[in-house]
């Protein structure tokens, strides 16, 4: 697989990462997402990483970049489903994902996105 699918749900985009990503795949996702946000004037992006069993500094940086990028393109990003072991490792690695919104699961993430968009 050389692309991670991006699903559209109204004014939101949904991404579920279900493969062990190599670096190029992460970069492609970043590009695809920014193009798609622009194309449909998306208001929010939800990234589900519950299937990821590690997040290293490269993927961590990708998540921060997507979040920053989408903010500039007038969309909110919420990252959901990070496994506890991944969160512990990420903090110890030195990455805190500051500025990235998170929620425990997809349902709460969608709720957060809707609230954010409504309050604008």
């Amino acid at each position: 697989m050389d692309r991670i699918p991006i699903l559209r749900m109204g004014e939101f985009l949904l991404v579920t990462i279900q493969v062990d990503m190599h670096d190029q795949l992460a970069l492609t996702l970043q590009d695809d997402l920014s193009t798609k946000i622009n194309e449909i004037s998306a208001k929010g992006v939800l990234i589900d990483i519950s299937a990821l069993d590690i997040v290293d500094s490269f993927i961590g940086r990708m998540i921060s970049m997507i979040s920053g990028l989408s903010r500039i393109l007038d969309a909110e990003t919420v990252v959901v489903g990070m496994q506890p072991a991944v969160a512990i490792t990420l903090v110890e690695l030195g990455l805190t994902l500051s500025g990235v919104s998170t929620a425990l699961d997809v349902e709460r993430g969608m709720k957060l996105l809707r609230e954010r968009v409504r309050s604008l």
Binding site: D53, V55, D56, F58, A85, V86, T89
Partner: peptide, 17 residues
Amino acid sequence: RLVDQTKLVTAVSELAR
């Protein structure tokens, strides 16, 4: 245990890269 597996595999990802 799972947390230590995750830490080791993450370190491997950094070093292999």
